[in-house]
Design a protein around this nucleic acid. Structure first.
Length: 939
RNA sequence: GCCCUGGUGGCGGAAUUGGUAGACGCGCAGGACUUAAAAUCCUGUAUGCAGUAAUGCGUGUACGGGUUCAAUUCCCGUCUGGGGCACCA
């Protein structure tokens, strides 16, 4: 075999090899995917990244490498594989950076993307870059806006559990009002056909707003007076703004919402058929938080016709109520608070305004609240119940009010104890007086007609009684709330909305048609000079008069949130250059769902729920024929950083090695991982690292400076970031890819350790030497393989296939090492074995595999090779060395044929010398024999 | 606080369905080759005790219980690391 393709150097020269084949792939367009193929399809998708200014660190590509291996494997198995990549390019950090540096987000984003691309290309992915999408590209967000229009023009028909066009709802309203399509947010809002016809245009639109899937309503945001802007949760730290530490308060603002709650049941039920981890499904179930119970109405004393409605999952405990608690934001608070209590309530409200929802839920030990002075009336006993407000009741959950049942709920119990409110024991002996009894077993007491009833059965009886008394109804409640869809920001999709007489109209509505210039999609984000917030908490767009002002009326100045563009991007990859539709029907019908979706589990609820909702909406409206976006989901864990510490003797510029630090009073400081080899600090590099350390002195141990180490999140500020580019320069992309996979299971977090990569690199060099000799060059022979060699390669074939299917890449890499070790020991250089090995290697180390593949004389890329088949006959063994245990402890090993039956084995085992010794003359009770596994003698 | 998830040698990790715990790699120690180094190769490496040794016996998968002939694996409780909790993406 000629070895001219490599010149005379016969070492593993990964730099040349990788450069050569990257160029070849590019020239041959081997990763270009067609929508027109007879092959079965497979759609493998990575969660696209937000292109941050910091670039990729070694943690980011973990999932990308895994999906790339899977994608390459599927191609070898004969699939037409769609494996695209793009950028989630809108987001807060770019805008923040713009505020700080004055650079336009589109400029910095462009720069960051170029950097990401360069880093991604380094790693040798098989992406079809001709399909790249960017959410901030007008040709992309045109369709994000278009989907928003569909949401605006649709409502959810509960009867058929499907979204329908809003025109159909208008026809229903004209005919019969809303009796058959009750208002999703306010069941008391009723009208008939006649009412409808008499409504003004404005009233009609307000009524419809209660039904639209994208609608305008009010929500609280963090408002910072000093900065004159709305802040993200992230930007609020310990109750003050992160920038400047200014005070912040919750403030009501007009916001767009998506009516995701209408889809709650379908989002819940749809989980059943998804190939996602149980944990991930469970998180979504908890987020949706479906619970069944009852709405119960309590009249308010001295306020005729006013009542407090509570949602409870425990109507069976209705006789245990001894007080009521409203959320501080509850609309009734201002109405029912008595003059005597007003000051106290106002003070309490002020306190609550500064508290985040998180704090309110977390601080269970700190009990706060305030009496309103008002009383509610128990619907059965007529008893007076004091009405309190407290931060532990959240306005957004249920009805924003609860009935206090101290004997049955631990928070109510703590509240009653703290404020010395009465506790009614309705559980007999089960309630001890110490803690609430929250089990659902036992019998009720002190509960009138429920007395003696089993708790499990009492719920239905109680609900019936509540309904009969006209005091409420059975109710299903969801913890999930509608999704806030407005951001007071610049760097996001503008809404295709204008306000006419203060009412929002989308640009495709008839009222706007007289202004054709307004009807154009996309509504492009205007170029701005400044990113400072607009007046009254509006976003920066409000400052651009030219843009805001249109002949029809002012534009909406909010922009869409980060998840808008990412909720449907997987559809765009199918047909990324389509200018007529978000994606053509032929394309969506061919590619359909994503077969495997790989990404971090931090997206467990947000992104994954919104994508599922958008897919269902597009399905309901007839645009696509499937209703789940991601069939199988694989979550990758994080690669953590390994931070290094140096110890400075207090008040000096002298640093003491880790082992000696106990002798001094020291300060622990982070040092950059790049100037530390293992644990040993390069003291000269350290001096150069920062000016302040230029004349640092060191106290060494054994002539070395040993640093301290800690595993934590990889981040720039912790100086523990490792850049894949550096690793690739030193070891090559193939080593990097295999090492990332070798680190451990894909789904768990593990620390990065640059030292360990040597092992994988050594392995690739060892593999190389099966094919090449340093002096002789290509040494593969046509000699026929023997049985032992065949067994090795077939075991390898089976293991690789099985492991890739399971996403168990770490064990696949181990198996490669075992195989190469075995073949090296056997001095095997046979084509029959090594050609198959090269193909198996292709998904993991594509550059090296391509080199080897061409070494065999192939003209086409290994990407298009065929994955070898394993043959069972090489895998079956006919004898087994059984571990033999006495009373569960392994004492010896005996070899038997797999055909040997139990009685024969028993005989042989009991005759064995070692077994005899451990039996100590006793007769065995029984012998447990598991064929192919083990033998256990029980005495 | 609530929800999800992890905890196995000095380190990353392996272990079909409950069936020989520690595969593979790093690190470390010793050796070969070399003037030397790098590279490469070989040997050993959970731990305690006994033994010159081969080896033998005991302990051991965060901790405490339980089920089982047999538990890293199943059940109950405790401790602890990580992620999410609705405007970071």
């Amino acid at each position: 075999m000629p070895n001219t393709f490599l010149g005379s150097i016969m070492e593993y020269t990964f730099r040349d090899i990788e450069k050569k084949w990257k160029q070849y792939w590019e020239e041959q367009q081997v990763y270009k995917v067609s929508n027109d193929s007879k092959l079965p399809k497979c759609y493998i998708l990575d969660m696209f990244p937000y292109p941050s200014g910091a670039g990729l660190h070694v943690g980011h590509p973990l999932g990308y490498i895994a999906s790339d291996i899977y994608a390459r494997y599927k191609r070898l198995r004969g699939y037409n594989v769609l494996h695209p990549m793009g950028y989630d390019a809108f987001g807060l950090p770019a805008e923040q950076y713009a505020i700080e540096t004055g650079q336009h987000p589109s400029v910095t984003t462009e720069k960051n993307i170029a950097r990401y691309r360069e880093q991604l290309d380094n790693i040798g992915f098989s992406y079809d870059w001709s399909r790249e999408v960017r959410t901030s590209d007008p040709s992309y967000y045109k369709w994000t806006q278009w989907i928003f229009l569909q949401l605006f023009h649709s409502w959810y028909d509960k009867k058929i559990q499907q979204a329908r066009p809003i025109e159909e709802l208008i026809k229903i309203f004209e005919k019969e009002g809303n009796s058959n399509a009750p208002c999703p947010t306010d069941s008391s809002f009723c009208f008939d056909g006649k009412n409808w016809k008499n409504y003004s245009e404005k009233e009609k639109r307000e009524a419809l707003m209660h039904y639209r899937l994208a609608y305008l309503s009010f929500a609280e945001v963090w408002w910072c007076e000093a900065l004159g802007t709305v802040l993200a949760n992230d930007e609020v730290v310990n109750g003050v703004s992160e920038r400047g530490g200014h005070p912040v308060v919750r403030k009501q603002m007009s916001q767009w919402f998506l009516r995701i709650t209408d889809y709650a049941d379908r989002l819940l039920d749809g989980l059943e058929h998804l190939d996602w981890s149980e944990a991930m499904k469970e998180m979504q179930r908890n987020w949706i938080g479906k619970s069944t119970g009852a709405d119960v109405r309590f009249d308010i004393q001295d306020y005729y016709g006013k009542h407090i409605t509570v949602f409870t999952t425990r109507p069976d405990t209705i006789f245990g109520v001894s007080f009521m608690v409203l959320a501080p934001e509850h609309a009734l608070v201002s109405e029912i608070t008595t003059t005597q209590q007003k000051q106290a309530v106002d003070e309490y409200l002020l306190y609550v305004k500064s508290r985040s929802e998180r704090e309110r839920m977390s601080d269970v030990k700190q009990i706060t609240g305030c009496f309103t002075g008002a009383y509610a009336i128990h619907p059965f006993t007529g008893q007076q119940l004091p009405v309190w407000i407290s931060e532990y009741v959240l306005a957004g959950y249920g009805t924003g009010a609860i009935m206090g049942v101290p004997a049955g709920d631990s928070r109510d119990h703590a509240f009653a104890k703290h404020f010395e409110l009465p506790i009614v024991n309705i559980f007999g002996k089960n309630y001890t007086g110490e803690d609430a009894y929250s089990e659902k077993t036992g019998v009720l007491d002190n509960s009138e007609f429920l007395n003696g009833l089993d708790l499990a059965k009492a719920t239905d009886v109680a609900i019936r009684a509540i309904v009969d008394a006209g005091a409420g109804r059975a109710k299903v409640n969801y913890k999930m709330r509608d999704a806030g869809f407005s951001r007071q920001r610049y760097w996001g999709e503008p809404f295709p909305v204008v306000y006419i007489a203060d009412s929002p109209y989308t640009i495709d509505e008839p009222q706007v048609t007289e202004y054709p210039e307004l009807q154009h999609l996309p509504v492009e984000l205007p170029v701005v000079e400044s990113y400072s917030p607009g007046p009254d908490g509006q976003g920066p767009l409000a400052n651009i008069k030219d843009w805001v002002t249109t002949p029809a009326g002012p534009r909406e100045t909010n922009t869409m949130p980060g998840y808008a563009g990412s909720s449907w991007y997987f559809l765009r990859y199918m047909d990324p250059h389509n200018s007529e539709e978000f994606a053509g029907k032929a394309a969506t019908e061919y590619w359909r769902q994503v077969d495997v979706y790989v990404g971090g589990n931090e997206h467990a609820v947000g992104h994954l729920l919104y994508s599922r909702m958008w897919t269902k909406v597009l399905h309901d409206l007839g645009y696509i024929s499937f209703q789940e976006p991601f069939k199988k989901l694989v979550n990758q864990g994080m690669i953590q950083g390994s931070t290094r510490f140096v110890y400075r003797i207090r008040g000096t510029n002298k640093f003491v090695s880790s082992g000696l630090k106990k002798d001094y009073e020291t300060d622990e400081l982070r040092a950059d991982v790049s100037i530390i080899n293992g644990l040993e600090l390069d003291t000269e590099a350290f001096k150069k690292w920062r000016d302040e350390y230029a004349d640092a002195e060191f106290v060494l141990e054994d002539g070395k400076y040993i640093t301290g180490a800690l595993v934590e999140k990889m981040s720039k500020s912790k100086y523990n970031v490792v850049n894949p580019d550096d690793i690739i320069v030193q070891y090559g992309a193939d080593t990097f890819r295999m090492y990332e996979m070798f680190l451990g299971p894909i789904d768990v977090s593990k620390p990065w350790d640059t030292k360990g990569i040597e092992g994988v690199h050594r392995f690739l060099k060892k593999l190389w030497r099966l094919y090449f000799d340093e002096q002789k060059g290509w040494i593969v022979t046509d000699e026929a393989p023997n049985d032992q060699e065949l067994r090795i390669i077939h075991k390898m074939i089976k293991k690789t296939g099985d492991d890739i299917e399971k996403f168990a890449f770490n064990t696949a890499v181990s198996q490669f090492m075992i195989t190469v070790n075995e073949l090296s020991t056997l001095n095997c250089h046979k084509r029959n074995i090594l050609e198959a090995l090269a193909v198996l290697l292709a998904p993991f180390a594509p550059h090296l595999a391509e080199e080897l593949w061409h070494g065999f004389g192939h003209e086409s890329s290994v990407v298009n090779a065929v994955f070898p088949m394993h043959e069972e006959k090489y895998l079956t063994e006919n004898t087994k060395l059984y571990p033999v245990a006495v009373n569960g402890k392994t004492r010896t090993e005996l070899e038997f044929s797999l055909e040997t039956d139990q009685s024969e084995i028993e005989k042989a085992v009991l005759a064995d010398e070692t077994v005899q010794k451990w039996l100590e003359g006793k007769t065995p009770k029984k012998v447990i024999f598991v064929k192919g596994k083990m033998i256990n003698v029980v005495v």
